[in-house]
Structures are given as structure tokens and as C-alpha cells.
Amino acid sequence: MTAPKPGQAVLVARGLTKVYRTGEVEVHALRSVDLDLYSGEFIVLLGPSGSGKSTLLNILGGLDVPTRGDITYRDHDLARADERELTRYRREHVGFVFQFYNLIPSLTARENVALVTEIAEQPMRPEEALQLVGLGQRMEHFPSQLSGGEQQRVAIARAVAKRPDLLLCDEPTGALDYVTGKLVLDTLLRVNVELGTTTVVITHNAAIAGMADRVIRIADGRIVRIESNPHKLKPEELSW
């Protein structure tokens, strides 16, 4: 596996449309979205709740397939992939971080990370991943014994331990307080810089946009604006 060169488009989406049917109601979560993601980028996806950003993230990450449109990751066609191919794509290329951490409560921090390193091809050691997020000292703790910020950092360690090409974070600071949130953002940036992982962060917190290479604004299922950010801030310089 050759690492994608910086600046090369790794994920290409054209005309992505997603329609959900819940009961009698049809919800257009995405309406014909075009998007390119470049290698090593740090992207912030901004939008109010219900704008379709989570749906977009799920499709980028192979958790869901679009109703219409195309999406390719390098030479993988994700729009027409079956369950088995999507599983392989997630296993080999994608790391996820969720708002509510989604740790397995019956496994310790180290074991939660090991859950991924067991099935990855060239993973780091779980200890290494946990040190990367600054939790070298709390590896044997169960989720219930960790604070929210710590749990989120375990989730990040779990996501990056497999050395993914793509790190997708859905409101990673949404459930955290100000200080802890910044700590988590700092961790994400470090992973982006040190490992060169293409990182997408979903948020409705506009302040976070300051640390991105590009900011994508989404509303009502459409991309309204894509801005490049020539003056990247460090997480500690952000304020909200």
C-alpha cells in the first residue's frame, strides 16, 4: 500500500444524494453534493443540526451508501459496494471518532484499542496509540472510570491505532467542556500532522473552523461554500 501524496484527491464525490424514508415522511438528507478530499488535509465540516453533515460523514466512511450519485475512494467504488466491501474499506482505511465515544463498556481503554489493532494490517501497538493521545497512564481503566475527555481520547486512540488514511470525527467535542474539548482538538491535530492522516471534523461550532485547512459549510443537504484557510490557528488559540 503506497501512501497517497499530499495534495492528491483521495476521495471524490459527485452528485451525492441521500433520501431517508421514515414512516410516511421522506427526508432529503443530501441533495446532489460534489466534494473532493485531498491527502493530509484537515477539514472542518460546518453546519447546523439536521443539515446533512452526519449523513455525508457516514457515506464518506462507508457506514452508509448514497441513494444516488458516485463516490470513489482511490479505486474503490463506495456507492455500489456491498456490505462486505464496505466492511473492508472501513477496516483498512477509515478511523471513526463519535460524539458519544461509543467505547465498549466491558473492555478497558487498552482493550478497546486492541479491538481494532487485532483486525488491522499494520497497526501501532495499543500502548503507543494511547500514549499518542496522552493516556499512557490510564490504559487499564474501564470507560466508566474515565472522564468524558479521556473517553474521547481513547476513542481517538482506537481510531488512529490502525494508521487509517481517513479519520472521520462526528462532533468530537460536542459532549465535552471547553478545556477538555481543546485538549481533544489538539490530539486530533497532532495525529493529522504526525501521521499525515486526512482528517474530517464535523461540528456546528464555527470557532473550530479556525484550525482547518479547508472549511466546508453545509446547509439543508447542500454544500453552500468551501473556503481555504491560509492562516491556520493552533487549537489553544481558538476560543468560543
Binding site: 457506514l63 466492511t87 472501513r90 477496516r91 483486525i119 488491522a120
Partner: peptide
């Protein structure tokens, strides 16, 4: 449910 979803997101097959 959510744990099943997480495991799948992490790349575990159905």
C-alpha cells in the same frame, strides 16, 4: 445496538 454499530464502524464484518 450502538455497540453493534460501533463494531461495524471499526471494521468488524456482519
Amino acid at each position: 445496538r450502538t455497540r453493534i454499530g460501533t463494531l461495524k464502524a471499526l471494521g468488524y464484518g456482519s
